[in-house]
Simulated assay, not measured.
Amino acid sequence: MQYCSNAYVQLLLTSHISISMTEKSDPYENAVAERINGLLKDEFNLVRTFQNIQ
């Protein structure tokens, strides 16, 4: 997995960019999160762009 490679992690760290990975570094956790996000977008019609908070 390239997102876990030393070169990539070092690039993020030297650029002061937060590393976004799951708590236990389990790549399969992301699939669950993406599935939930997809369901929420479908159920609440969140695929559209909002002009403001209202």
Rank of each mutant, 00 (worst) to 15 (best):
M1C: 01
M1L: 03
M1A: 05
Q2M: 10
Y3K: 08
Y3Q: 13
Y3V: 09
C4I: 09
C4E: 13
A7V: 13
A7Y: 07
Y8P: 00
Y8M: 07
Y8S: 07
Y8E: 06
Y8I: 09
V9F: 07
Q10I: 11
Q10C: 10
Q10P: 02
L11W: 10
L11Q: 14
L12F: 09
L12W: 06
L12H: 12
L13I: 13
T14H: 15
T14C: 12
T14M: 15
S15A: 15
S15C: 14
S15F: 05
S15R: 15
S15K: 14
I17H: 07
S18M: 05
S18Q: 12
S18H: 07
I19V: 13
S20W: 03
S20P: 01
M21N: 13
M21V: 14
M21C: 14
M21A: 15
M21Y: 09
M21I: 12
T22S: 13
T22D: 12
E23L: 14
K24W: 03
K24S: 10
S25M: 14
S25L: 11
S25I: 07
S25V: 06
S25A: 11
D26N: 14
D26G: 01
D26V: 02
Y28E: 08
Y28K: 09
E29Q: 06
N30T: 15
N30K: 10
A31R: 02
A31N: 04
E34W: 00
E34D: 06
E34N: 03
E34F: 01
R35E: 00
I36A: 00
I36S: 00
I36F: 00
G38V: 00
G38K: 04
G38W: 00
L40M: 02
K41R: 13
K41E: 08
K41S: 09
D42E: 10
D42G: 02
E43S: 09
F44I: 02
L46H: 01
L46D: 01
R48S: 11
R48F: 06
R48T: 09
R48G: 12
F50R: 13
F50V: 09
Q51T: 11
Q51A: 12
Q51M: 07
N52F: 04
N52C: 06
I53A: 14
I53Q: 08
I53T: 09
Q54Y: 07
